[in-house]
Design a protein around this nucleic acid. Structure first.
Lengths: 233, 233
DNA sequence: CGGCCGCTTGAACGTTTTCAAACTCCGTGG
DNA sequence: CCACGGAGTTTGAAAACGTTCAAGCGGCCG
């Protein structure tokens, strides 16, 4: 536990690669670096909870964060994942609402925390920064609308295929074509919006059809084009 | 057709009540009024189409606009309605994407059209305006996330109850407790994300349970609290 | 008056969920 | 080192839910 006790190195804390900050002046960037708090976060840790007030937002430098809402009798609905380069928690700050989701570390992460007032000040002072944030929010909105349509109209089978493709695009495959994110069957079900057993049955069906190979939580994509057809884009 | 041939009166074109514009300077407001084009739009008319480029955005002064995506074999998924005070089409402009929805007039409307460059210029020049737009986008994003969870986890019955409550909140009831928006059963189904027949069956079930009364497209809300319970918030 | 569109109902069908049980893997403690 | 326990996974069978198809009705517009 040497790492989690210590503070990340300056390189690990760098925000330079975050597309959001490219339009900041040197002065503003210094301000950001002065205000930021960078930390290690272990798997399982909660960053914030649905319904709570957001003290600030987070920039992901390494690791994976799961963002979800809690629905009927505690069942979670996964809304998104955040990985290197993503920011999270900005929505609630800008809309002056309490957090509409919960964020939990899925893979050990290095995150920078930036206080809410900084976000608001930057948005008010730097119109390019503001524009980037707005662009991001509008893109997310477009994706959310698309997902509403999918979830309302597609079968569970189609949605599972689609989710696998989405995960492949976001987290890539390794040299063996294995999805570079490890999810439980239940988590997969909570993205798709279905029961765990349904995911299990459909996955083995996909395997039987030669679309993919399974090895515990490792999912190897064998036939992307068939999978894409199944998702019916 | 005297009206549709003529141009709306200055009062009908006023944008003063739109909350979006309250932070504009007098000069900026003059600019908006100079650039705006105000028109009558008849029921059935399309404002823009999914996949097309947005030349600008619209402010609703009167009437109702239906905003939807087209899914599997043409089935529409209604994403939102816009009424007096709402703006639409801004998302695609700010995210530099093509329209992710289609907009169609549901009730004869008076709309102001504002060119895309105006939106972008205002966003870049007036940080308060920019902040308002961002706030709106972030709120919509929160609502979209909530709807994803609902549609993924709730039964059709719960969702229909929820949609009726949403419509009541947005369009109010008249003095007879009748919903002030007229939708076909199919349109209701396309909000809920289900088949037309399911909506019909559930509506008559709600009626049998004394929750509401039906008279063609007129839906009279009899027992809001029971309906709310059914929606399980 | 005819035809079309929207509404309604019934019945069959298919998909998905639920419940129950058993199995596997893995880490902990005896 | 092995037993134990727990979480996650898998499978089967039954049940619930929702869709689809088919048919008939009713009202409105041309």
């Amino acid at each position: 536990m040497k790492r989690s006790a210590s503070i990340p190195s300056p390189e690990e804390c760098s925000l330079d690669f975050h597309p959001i900050f490219i339009h900041l002046t040197e002065e503003e960037m210094e301000w950001v670096n002065y205000e930021k708090t960078c930390n290690y976060h272990k798997r399982g840790e909660h960053l914030y909870h649905e319904g709570g007030r957001m003290a600030g937002f987070y920039c992901v430098n390494t690791g994976i964060v799961k963002i979800y809402k809690t629905g009927i009798d505690g069942k979670e609905q996964i809304i998104a994942f955040a990985k290197k380069g993503d920011i999270l928690g900005y929505r609630s700050i800008l809309s002056s609402e309490s957090a509409c989701t919960t964020a939990k570390i899925l893979e050990d992460a290095i995150l920078c925390f930036l206080p809410a007032h900084l976000l608001i000040d930057l948005v008010k002072k730097n119109s390019d920064f503001s524009f980037e944030i707005m662009k991001m929010a509008c893109q997310e909105l477009g994706e959310a609308n698309a997902y509403i349509t999918d979830i309302a109209q597609k079968t569970v089978r189609e949605r599972l295929a689609e989710v696998l493709i989405m995960l492949k695009n976001k987290f890539e495959l390794d040299e063996n074509k294995v999805l570079q994110i490890s999810l439980t069957r239940e988590e997969l079900a909570n993205i798709v919006g279905t029961a765990t057993e349904s995911v299990i049955r459909l996955l083995s069906e996909f395997k039987a059809d030669g679309l993919l190979d399974l090895n515990g939580r490792k999912i190897k994509i064998l036939d992307l084009s068939k999978l894409t057809k199944l998702a019916s884009f």
